[in-house]
Design a protein around this nucleic acid. Structure first.
Lengths: 166, 166
DNA sequence: GTTTATTTTCAATTATTTTTGAAACTATAA
DNA sequence: TTATAGTTTCAAAAATAATTGAAAATAAAC
């Protein structure tokens, strides 16, 4: 396969995968592009490569910074801002795990805790409580797993352990 | 909190969470509703409870069956079809892990394998290859983790182990 | 066979999300 | 200070995804 073709396919594939996981395509494609770029890129660069507008680029670059996946870089004598992706791919994974946990899991854990506190008089309420308790444990498991990823660096053991389940 | 209120809050919360993970709201809400219902429900029942159309109900109930999260049930003497959710919450989790793996992870693994096979002549191509290899290992890790969940039943050890990282 | 109850399909509509682009803003340089 | 280069914002437009509803299909009952 041609390099240019491979690059396009990667950016495309990454964008599609992201969409299925609730992340918008431009954001994923920007990330993909910066990941494989050996050089820092300007807003102009990414706009041209992905054929997207300035506004779109600006907003999604900012979101990527909020997620801790890319950084702004200044070059001496240059007025423009350059962007570089975090290249340590495990750090990227940890960062994604961290953010999704914070934004999505934690709030749900709280709601579930509230919900399992109702008093179960009717059969419906009993069933409800049972389901809430079950979900709590599953969500708790997901939470632990994400934490395991987040702390994988400190826990060499973890990654070794998971290999067992190949 | 009132039971009816709790029920609504749960269905609402579940729908929102699902949206953030790329699953449509109706499907998630249908699932939530059936999960907490002690009795099998007809299409009419769910339409009324969630205030959605027949078409919407029909399509999403079918999707939920494709995901292996709910079952059709026939009642003697009744012409209508009844739906029940899989109530074993760990089975639900395994099923979701299984399906997402099959639909999303596996195809990406294949693409990445293709992409890391290009020959790296230019610095760009070298960087590209490096990133593809890194991503392969991360996606491989995700794959292993999902597999661990899928086989959790057989692997009591797994769940115990993850508790360490609480 | 026909009638009737129920489910499914899918084109059209509606809702939601994403993207655009130009104006407003910021900061550096002259 | 004013001009200039670059960035951000956000209302409007476009694209995408979800939902409706009525017609078609299916299947049980007669």
């Amino acid at each position: 396969m041609e390099f240019t073709e491979a690059k396009d396919k990667f950016i495309q594939t990454w964008g599609t995968l992201a969409t299925q996981w609730g992340i918008n395509r431009s954001m994923a494609q920007l990330h993909a592009l910066l990941l494989i770029s050996p050089e820092p890129m300007t807003t102009e660069d990414v706009m041209e490569q992905l054929q997207i507008s300035r506004g779109n680029a600006s907003m999604n670059l900012r979101d990527l910074m909020d997620w801790g996946l890319i950084y702004k870089q200044l070059k001496a004598g240059e007025r423009k801002e350059f962007y570089v992706a975090e290249k340590d791919i495990w750090k990227v994974a940890r960062q994604v795990a961290k953010e999704r946990r914070r934004r999505e899991i934690t709030p749900v854990v709280e709601v579930l805790n509230d919900l399992k506190a109702i008093d179960a008089t009717t059969p419906e309420a009993q069933e409800f409580k049972r389901v809430m308790e079950g979900l709590s444990s599953v969500v708790g498991f997901a939470d632990n797993t994400l934490n395991a990823v987040i702390r994988a660096e400190e826990n060499w053991l973890m990654s070794q352990f998971l290999k067992v389940f190949r």
